[in-house]
Design a protein around this nucleic acid. Sequence first.
RNA 1: GCCGCUAUCGUCUAGGGGUCAGGACGGAUGGUUCUCAGCCAUCAAACCGGGGUUCGAAUCCCCGUAGCGGUACCA
Length: 495
Amino acid sequence: MGKNSERTEMNGTLSQNDQVRVRMAPSPTGYLHIGGARTALFNWLFAKHHNGKFILRIDDTDTARSTHESMHEIYDALKWLGINWNEQYVQSDRKSIYEGYVEQLLESGNAYHCYCTPEELEEIRAQARVDKQTRSYDGRHRHLTSEDVDRFIAEGRKPTVRIKMPDTPILVEDIVLGSRNIDPETLEDEVIVRSNGMPNYNLTSIIDDAEMQITHVIRGTEHLNNTPKQIAIANALGLEVPQFAHIPLVLDSGGRKMSKRHHGDLVAVNRYREQGYLPEAMLNFVVRLGWSYDDKQEIFSVDELIKKFDLDRVGKSGSVFDIKKLEWLNSHYINQLDVAVRTDAVIPFWQEEGLLDSVEDRDWLESIVEAVGERLTTFQDIVPQTRYFFTDEFEYESKAVKKWWGGSDEKKQKTCEILTNLQQILEEIPAFDIETIESVIWKYTDENDIKRVAAMQALRIALTGTSFGPSLFDIVVLLGKDEVLKRIPKAIAHL
RNA sequence: GCCGCUAUCGUCUAGGGGUCAGGACGGAUGGUUCUCAGCCAUCAAACCGGGGUUCGAAUCCCCGUAGCGGUACCA
């Protein structure tokens, strides 16, 4: 009802026995980025929701920029996210298929060879701009005489193939954006085959969509302008046109499209994996960029998403990538994990940092993770949070020192006294467990009229170098008596 | 320049002729506490502008404005 009636109607044209087939068609020119992950997710969820198929198609017609390596990076990233595919194609394997269609287009007169050089084209573009024209290429090689052709060939020019754009309006129906007629005057004869013989995106994409019986093309709005061109090609070929759904862009905090080019690592899905983000968090975060369910739910499991996701609740405007929200979701999902799983996840980060080489003392490690509790935003956070458990080679944070150890000589004196007393108390303690330590320390502070926080923070800095972290009693026990009795004098000496 | 798309708190969004315009992230304040985080409570914060239509407009219609996307022998 209301706002989305148009869409649901169009969605309703899908008949019961038509199986949904969607695809994600990345070009392997780098890692999978956030926008790509969202496109993949929307497609995948749509397929799952409608019990259809999700197809991965590698659009590598740009041979100069495509790499095998990045193809595998994309596979890895999708697998990590848990987005699996039913079928897989690589366009470079399908060149002969496209050639057949090009032949057909040429024969039917819907396409023609264009011998313009890049320099000429450049000129045409510049001129069109000063003339305030919509189109730049004017179809000048639509009707070449054989003498013209011979001359160009003699000059050594290699032709491209261009599609003849129709002179009637093209109806573009979009499930998200609605329908509109595109004025043919705004369309120009696109290059569909390069002069090196490689077919172009607009050609291969729509051919494969038809060949693979794609029912819905769900992709970013940066492709909106390509849609009428692709429809024109499909029409010329008599191919069936899929339904389109253009989803809004993922933007940076300045409101610009997120891209590898401008944002580098920040948009790489793999980077988030490396930093200790959970795929569940990533999925949950990314799905809410442009899609919402109602006014109350923020946390969605994958199963819920499959159940609830549909195109009718996809918005039309771009969404800003807000890392704070991702962090919130990530800590939420980390906290759902039990200690053993969290420990497994965190061990590689300790190892990578050189803090840990063997995991013999598994119980101790789990106790550390337990003590850290809900303080992890990412698994990587384990390192700054727990470094001091593994080494006494840490700095005493200057800010903490200033605040809790003493900006003045007098305060230093006091801190020194407290630490000396604590050292003695802990040395003589009957049992080294949380309860005993707590009671002994509280007894000391209360009887000597020392603020608990002052004594605790002094000790905390002595043992960890920082003023924040897990319960100090946990830390003391986990460090062990020997280590604690070694670190206090060291701190006193530093004072 | 040209073509196109979009417009609700800082951000993600709900709502879509009558609502105190709701929620979440982030922010602020207070409480709990040995610190931090967490948790609890409280608070600030939005309908791009101008005209219509209407008893009534964030919502419908015009007109602006702004932002973004595309403008390749990239995808």
